[in-house]
Nucleic acid binder design. Structure first.
Lengths: 184, 184
DNA sequence: CACTATCCTGACCGATCGGCCAGTTTTCAA
DNA sequence: TTGAAAACTGGCCGATCGGTCAGGATAGTG
């Protein structure tokens, strides 16, 4: 009882891992609990034994990226607007490249996501990112342009093609700086 | 027999109209044939009597925008690269605003769309648009930036919020010109 | 009026979905 | 070793999906 039971954690991790792979390659809706169970080498009932429903599996898969995004926002919160803008742009591009596969999943669910309260803070995090990237301006057009930039970045990471991480990184960095008029 | 039977056309149009509304508001997958039938005031069997399966309903809904996009590309094909780029940017933004609701539907299906041959030319049309917007350059980064711009535009039109057509138009036009470095 | 082609529908089908539960197997500490 | 807690599973449930079919309603025409 001193440490967490190894069996529980091992199975949980395996389910999470396989679910992530499937969500990334086929999307959330197109992946059934049976698909996840088969890939993880257990039964569908076991998946539901470890996770309280299908959305809970998604929440677990998204957890690392959620934490990373919130950290980024928290760090930027303690900076002056201009520095926060530059910092957020750099880190956000890095995160987008790192978690590029998951962006597919997020875009799939943007319309239905509001139903699930467990993803509410992800929405608000996206809005905070927009404000930071806009550089704290009042100009509505600039704020909308920041949204535009995020949309472009997310869309680009959805269809990575055969681009390497470095190429994708350069592309997103260049595009964001052009839209936001931030020359390095 | 001289003209098309009015009853047939009337029902078809009603089904198309209601299907478009539902596809736009909920997405393609989340809209069932029963939803369409109920909204159109007929039975699900009637929908399948007029359309050869659910994808055929989608194809009918997308037809006007498909024609408009192909016309745009055909017109641009007969211009020098610089003029085509300027022309395509202007017209593409107009089309995106006009058909902004349908973009939701397209994004939903980008991953599954390749399965249906009836939508194959829509994919190729998108790639042609990219080349034209890139201004016929060889620079891969510029081509990728054009893709980025299209992604941003599509993403922005997905969540129009309470923006008017004019505001959305200005936003997309500005963003595309910044990314592509095309100052008016 | 009667007949026929067209339009339309209720009922049904097989498949798949997320989720639930009673009961079996495994694990692990006393 | 043993017994209870934890982990796991087969089987089932209700709902929903796209699609089919035989036959009823309807409308236009001779």
């Amino acid at each position: 009882m001193a440490a967490t039971t190894p069996a529980r954690e091992r199975t949980r991790r395996e389910i999470e891992q396989q679910a992530m792979t499937l969500f990334v390659s086929r999307g959330y809706d197109a992946t059934s609990l049976q698909d996840i169970a088969t890939a993880a080498g257990c039964s569908k009932a076991t998946v539901l034994y470890h996770f309280n429903g299908k959305p809970a599996v998604l929440a677990a898969v998204l957890e690392p990226s959620r934490i990373a995004l919130n950290d980024l926002i928290d760090q930027a919160a303690g900076m002056p607007a201009a520095a926060a803008q530059e910092f957020a742009l750099t880190r956000f591009v890095e995160l987008a490249v790192e978690f590029r596969g998951l962006i597919n999943v997020l875009q799939d669910l943007l319309s239905t996501m509001e139903q699930y309260p467990e993803f509410a803070d992800l929405i608000t995090a996206g809005m905070r990112m927009t404000e930071i990237l806009a550089g704290g301006t009042d100009d509505q057009l600039e704020i909308d342009l920041a949204k535009f930039a995020i949309n472009g970045l997310l869309g680009e990471c959805r269809h990575p093609g055969d681009r390497t991480d470095a190429e994708l990184h350069t592309l997103c960095d260049t595009a964001l700086r052009r839209i936001l008029r931030l020359n390095r």
